[in-house]
């Protein structure tokens, strides 16, 4: 882009009305052009000055305090995680991992992406640094809500995963001649079967997850108390709002423990797996809240899913 072309686009770039390609080209030119650089800066200042003409509105003080507090907590967590990572105790070192690559993300403090691995999930930060928060008076509310939900244990608890496995088996047979795809599917099938195996038996506790407040069933949390394996399956869960993520909490009498963040796939499905030691009778509920991207050290957003243990 030559000087004349760039100069003619400065106003559009300042107003963010130019295409990304044009804006990039103009900014590249302006960064070295003694005429366009200051002109663009002045136009951007003009745009900001127009913004300051907006009628003054006062943000709700309580919500503003909440935003401020969340920002500072996130900033502090980020600083601490960057300056001094603390190794987690051995019993929680395996952490949470997405088995199906459905967008599970680490909670604050996590710097490493979480890789998919069925038998031995890649360690993830959320449970390496479990976030325990004191239970506030609102805990009573959480439990009251959770207690109203039905506790459902049926023979179809694993039907979603089993259904996936069976579907994979059919597909595997159909594509048996295509080696690379076949290998990949066989591995995925093996992972599903391992998951089903670890989530069946007398030591497995099942928590039915339902929407709040409409109590629509939309998933299960399986907890194998013998092996401390956890698996959460969701279906029909709507996508979180832009800039938000879902965060899973294990609620005990003394704490709400972050079990990681996730985004469901386009069908609202999620499969998460974790290994985390918890006393056999400690779990009171499982909850999912909507939090800012990256997650929070303690629940701050609306509780969208809950299940009574």
């Amino acid at each position: 882009m030559n000087h004349e072309e760039a100069f003619s686009e400065l106003a559009a770039v300042a107003l963010d009305s130019a295409s990304a390609e044009v804006a990039d080209a103009v900014r590249a030119h302006a960064s070295t052009c003694p005429e366009c650089g200051p002109e663009l800066a002045a136009m951007e200042e003009t745009v900001a000055a127009i913004g300051e003409l907006a009628p003054q509105a006062r943000i709700n003080p309580g919500r503003s305090a909440g935003i401020r507090s969340r920002l500072l907590v996130r900033a502090r967590n980020e600083r601490e995680s960057q300056s001094a990572p603390v190794p987690g105790p051995p019993d929680i070192a395996r952490g949470v991992a997405s088995l199906t690559g459905l967008g599970h993300k680490a909670t604050p403090g996590a710097q490493r992406p979480v890789a998919a691995d069925a038998r031995r999930p890649t360690p993830a930060t959320p449970l390496r640094h479990p976030v325990r928060t004191d239970v506030s008076p609102s805990r009573v509310n959480w439990y009251a809500i959770a207690a109203t939900l039905a506790f459902i244990i049926t023979g179809a608890q694993l039907w979603r995963v089993t259904q996936d496995r069976n579907e994979m088996r059919s597909q595997l047979a159909a594509v048996d001649t295509v080696q690379p795809k076949s290998d990949s599917m066989a591995q995925a099938l093996s992972e599903k079967e391992a998951m089903i195996e670890s989530m069946a038996g007398p030591d497995v506790k099942v928590v039915a997850l339902s929407t709040k407040p409409t109590a629509q069933p939309l998933g299960r949390m399986f907890w194998n108390r013998a092996t401390n394996d956890w698996m959460m399956v969701t279906y029909n869960l709507p996508a979180p709002k832009p800039g938000k993520t879902y965060q899973v909490w294990l609620v005990t009498d003394k704490a709400k423990i972050s079990a990681g963040t996730f985004r469901p796939d386009s069908q609202g499905r999620t499969v998460m797996h974790a290994n985390y030691a918890l006393a056999r009778d400690a779990l009171r509920a499982v909850a999912i809240t909507e939090e800012p991207d990256g997650g929070m050290p303690a629940p701050t957003g609306p509780m969208v899913v809950v299940g009574s243990a």
Binding site: G51, E52, A54, P55, Q56, A57, R58, I59, S64, I67
Partner: peptide, 10 residues
């Protein structure tokens, strides 16, 4: 916060 909120609310 006030200036920013005023603008984005507008």
């Amino acid at each position: 916060v006030r200036s920013l909120y005023s603008l984005v609310l507008h």
